[in-house]
């Protein structure tokens, strides 16, 4: 199965490696043409302001929005969560997001790099804890009524799903545990 990984900037290579290990065919997406034949899309961590800019200059923004509106499944991590959220606080005024999930997030809500951390999480649907790495992570401020919280950290949602859209404020691509990628591929079918 061909799964796109948004590759304008960020940790796209690690997502690609995780997907390939699970038997999917990752395809790096930098231009609208790269989206053709892609069944689902992963939006990696990275710098959301730079990614937003590069999505616009490459013409990818509208192309991705069209596919998302048509129901393409998507998995966004960290910056990917910011790009998919309905409302972004502490973003740049020119920063765009796809509003694919009813969520309010605050950029860098967990603080600067010295505050970045790792910790085990209990995740709905997984029978043992998932080790999560948070890096200058966005914090979820509000979850819409249609969205389902799959994991929390200190009472704050960190893994949320709404229909075909799954977002995490941490980085499952940075560990060898690919269960969340596997779950995503299973949902894509």
């Amino acid at each position: 199965m061909r799964v796109g990984v948004l590759a304008v900037q960020g940790a796209f290579a690690r997502h690609g490696a995780a997907l390939a290990e699970l038997g999917a065919e990752p395809c790096f997406v930098r231009t609208p043409a790269d989206l053709a034949g892609v069944r689902a899309l992963v939006m990696p961590g990275g710098e959301s302001t730079a990614m937003s800019r590069l999505l616009l200059t490459s013409g990818l923004f509208d192309a991705v929005q069209e596919r998302l509106d048509a129901g393409m499944p998507v998995f966004g991590t960290c910056a990917g969560m910011i790009l998919l959220a309905g409302e972004v606080l502490d973003g740049r005024p020119d920063q765009r997001s796809f509003a694919a999930i009813d969520l309010t997030v605050r950029r860098n809500g967990y603080g600067r790099q010295v505050d970045s951390f790792e910790q085990d999480l209990t995740v709905a649907g997984l029978d043992s804890p998932f080790h999560a790495v948070f890096i200058r992570a966005p914090v979820v401020i509000r979850v819409g009524p249609q969205a389902e919280v799959l994991a929390e950290h200190e009472g704050v949602p960190v893994l949320v799903r709404q229909g075909g859209v799954t977002v995490a404020s941490f980085h499952p691509e940075l560990t060898e545990d690919h269960r969340l990628h596997a779950q995503f591929l299973q949902e894509v079918g």
């Binding site: 960020g10 990275g46 010295v114 790792e118 804890p129 200058r136 929390e152 200190e154």
Partner: peptide, 24 residues
Amino acid sequence: QDPSGTKQTGTIAVKRGLAEMLKG
């Protein structure tokens, strides 16, 4: 929350992780 997992900052994974985010 899993009670056994303690929160750790400044680890190799966290430090190398930010470099991963800067790629490209």
